[in-house]
């Protein structure tokens, strides 16, 4: 497989509430409701993304491949369901930048090779829907290209780079010498 890019750029979806501020503590049931846990085909999961998050139910219809999510604090708290990561991969969402994430959500995203960056200063980018966001996984720089603003975030560790480059943890294992 072709080398995966360490710089991602695409239109951003700030996941905000009615007041325009980031929604915090969006849990896995709001991201991917437990009514659809029996779905095992990743491609079918996209239609349920944010299906239980007030104001965002139509996200699967609006999102386009290459888009990037910007989220608040403790995103993905709750259960260990992999679906809450895979539903965005199914839609082609390129990655997610957030104030902070639930530990298991972060682990699942890392294992899936889906770019996730923690960025405590995300609000300073004044992201509006459709602004072009650039995330540099290697340097940790996160930028609002449209508005010409940038803030530092935590760059990928060796572990994250290894797994991301291989296309996921299980795929990384397949590359190990027998």
């Amino acid at each position: 497989m072709a080398a995966r890019p360490f710089v991602l750029e695409g239109p951003v979806w700030p996941i905000v509430g009615a007041l325009g501020t980031f929604l915090n503590d969006v849990d896995t049931d709001q991201i991917y409701h437990n009514a659809h846990l029996a779905v095992t085909d990743v491609d079918e999961m996209g239609q349920y993304a944010f299906g239980n998050l007030a104001g965002w139910e139509d996200f699967p219809k609006k999102a386009k491949p290459g888009d990037i999510l910007a989220v608040g604090a403790n995103f993905g708290a709750g259960s260990s369901r992999q679906h809450a990561v895979d539903c965005f991969r199914a839609l082609g969402v390129a990655g997610v930048v957030g104030l902070s994430f639930g530990a298991i959500y972060k682990r699942n995203a890392t294992n899936a090779g889906w770019p996730l960056m923690e960025c405590p200063r995300l609000a300073e980018l004044e992201l509006a829907p459709g602004d072009v966001l650039r995330m540099n996984l290697e340097t940790g720089k996160v930028a609002n290209v449209t508005k010409g603003k940038a803030v530092p975030a935590r760059p990928f560790s060796r572990v994250q780079k290894d797994i991301y480059s291989a296309g996921g943890l299980l795929a990384y294992g397949a590359k190990l010498a027998s």
Binding site: Q82, R107, T110, N111, I163, L169, L170, G173, L176
Partner: peptide, 13 residues
């Protein structure tokens, strides 16, 4: 998935 990898690799992250 993590444990399957651990079986294969002998380590985890």
């Amino acid at each position: 998935a993590d444990v399957a990898f651990a079986f294969r690799a002998g380590w985890t992250w």
